[in-house]
């Protein structure tokens, strides 16, 4: 079995790619997918640590994260559809009604 540093390194790289996606892309759906990627990399670290300590609590936590992600995606996509119906765009630079 490889040491845990390999899996943590992969998790860090995936998390950074997700962060870059949130910062660079302007399409709300792509930003949402990047957030999913970040959640997923955190899950990978959880499972790696769970295997390292031979304790199952990390896997239960991953299960909860997945349930929260499912709820979040449902509401978030409904919001995106509703914004698109109102503004005909999901470019987040166009969503500036609250700008002071």
């Amino acid at each position: 079995m490889l040491p845990i540093q390999y899996f943590l390194g992969l998790s860090i790289i995936l998390f950074t790619i997700g962060t870059l996606g949130v910062l660079i892309r302007r399409n709300a759906i792509i930003i949402f997918m990047s957030v999913e990627l970040m959640l997923n990399s955190a899950n990978l670290a959880f499972v790696a640590f769970s295997h390292m300590h031979q304790v199952l609590n990390g896997q239960v936590f991953v299960f909860f994260t997945m349930a929260v992600a499912a709820a979040e995606v449902g509401v978030g996509l409904a919001l995106i559809v509703s914004i698109f119906k109102a503004k005909q765009s999901i470019n987040i630079d166009d969503i500036n009604n609250l700008r002071g």
């Binding site: 899996f7 899950n43 499972v47 769970s50 295997h51 896997q59 992600a69 499912a70 996509l77």
Partner: peptide, 27 residues
């Protein structure tokens, strides 16, 4: 597949059905 390797078969299959199946189909 990494989850399977790290001794989490239940989480791996949940990942396939919930994430790759349900959530991404919704996207």
């Amino acid at each position: 597949i990494f989850y399977l390797w790290l001794g989490a078969p239940f989480i791996a299959l949940t990942q396939v059905t919930v994430y790759a199946g349900a959530i991404m189909v919704l996207f």
